[in-house]
């Protein structure tokens, strides 16, 4: 420990000038060792994420079709222009917006309410939390399949229950006004626990002394919730909302299983439409541009949202 300061100030440089340990090849310096360790992960990242993204970006400027083959001809921004001006895309964007707003709002309200109730309960909190998390652990395809049976108008358990209390049959998945609501309900059933979990973490972290001080001042329950609980949990809740909104924005599996986008195209989301463009007509160039635009929208909206979050934090 003759010169501890120099070690901490220039750890890498010091490490690299250190002679290799006895038994290590003279050619295997720290530098090559670093590269050797990083390379597998780096190659995987390049092959599985970066390259496909760049390749899709390249294809988005072409009229390439995966099945037709042949050379990809550059059409520059034609695909982007066509997508942004297409009435079909606008319709799917509106459906997606309705879905995202509906699902995320419902999940946030329910998730926070459940978390709030659980946080006030001392006994059995762990068991309750675990039980609430079960839907989140299931595959969306499995969830879609069993909800499809439950929502079946003829023999589904939901209509059977409604019938037993004297209510008529509801065509959950085949009517325009109920199909999107059904999707929102199923997504809410599966993903409310996610919001609940994050809200619960926030609620548990609120210092108890704040509540004690409020009690001494004889503050009402509502006042404590409004001035202590909500402001402290709010930033964490907004992050959960961001995650859920991004997930909901790219919804595909539940639509595919439950409604196939129907009736007509009334529950077709943007992701489902991209799938059709990509695989029904194999318009790979258009589908790539569509995907790139969706990513851009998510990035821009997420950035704006993060700025709002940071501002909230500063305030």
């Amino acid at each position: 420990m003759s010169d501890p300061v120099s070690l901490t100030d220039h750890p890498v440089r010091e490490a690299s000038s250190t002679p290799p340990a006895p038994g290590r090849s003279r050619h295997l310096s720290d530098r090559w060792l670093t590269v050797a360790f990083i390379s597998p992960a780096l190659l995987l990242l390049l092959a599985m994420s970066v390259f496909p993204l760049l390749w899709a970006l390249y294809l988005s400027f072409t009229d390439y079709s995966a099945t037709r083959g042949g050379p990809a001809t550059f059409v520059w921004f034609e695909n982007f222009t066509a997508i942004l001006t297409s009435a079909q895309v606008h319709l799917r964007a509106f459906t997606t917006l309705l879905y995202v707003v509906g699902a995320v709002t419902l999940q946030t309200v329910l998730g926070f309410s459940i978390a709030y109730l659980i946080s006030r309960r001392v006994r059995g909190r762990g068991v309750l939390t675990t039980l609430f998390l079960v839907p989140m652990m299931l595959s969306p395809v499995v969830v879609g399949l069993f909800w499809r049976f439950m929502l079946d108008a003829q023999f589904g358990v939901i209509n059977s229950m409604l019938g037993s209390i004297g209510l008529g049959q509801v065509e959950w998945l085949t009517k325009q006004n109920t199909a999107l609501i059904s999707l929102i309900v199923v997504d809410t059933w599966q993903w409310t626990p996610f919001i609940m979990l994050i809200a619960l973490a926030g609620l548990t972290a609120v210092p108890k002394y704040l509540y004690e001080a409020a009690s001494i001042d004889r503050a009402s329950e509502w006042f404590r919730f409004r001035t202590i609980t909500l402001p402290l949990v709010w930033p964490l809740l907004l992050i959960a909302v961001l995650f859920r909104a991004i997930e909901a924005f790219r919804l595909f599996d539940l639509v595919y299983i439950l409604t196939s986008g129907g009736p007509g195209v009334s529950t077709e989301t943007l992701s489902f439409h991209v799938y059709k463009v990509a695989f029904l007509g194999f318009n790979t160039g258009t589908a790539s541009a569509y995907g790139i635009l969706m990513v851009l929208i998510v990035i821009v909206l997420a950035q704006l949202y993060m700025r709002y979050l940071n501002k909230l934090k500063e305030d």
């Binding site: 034609e78 222009t81 990509a278 007509g281 194999f282 160039g285």
Partner: peptide
């Protein structure tokens, strides 16, 4: 769709 054969860009929408 039938008429769009040969159209550049935005095919499949």
């Amino acid at each position: 769709v039938l008429d769009s054969a040969g159209k550049k860009g935005g095919g499949g929408l």
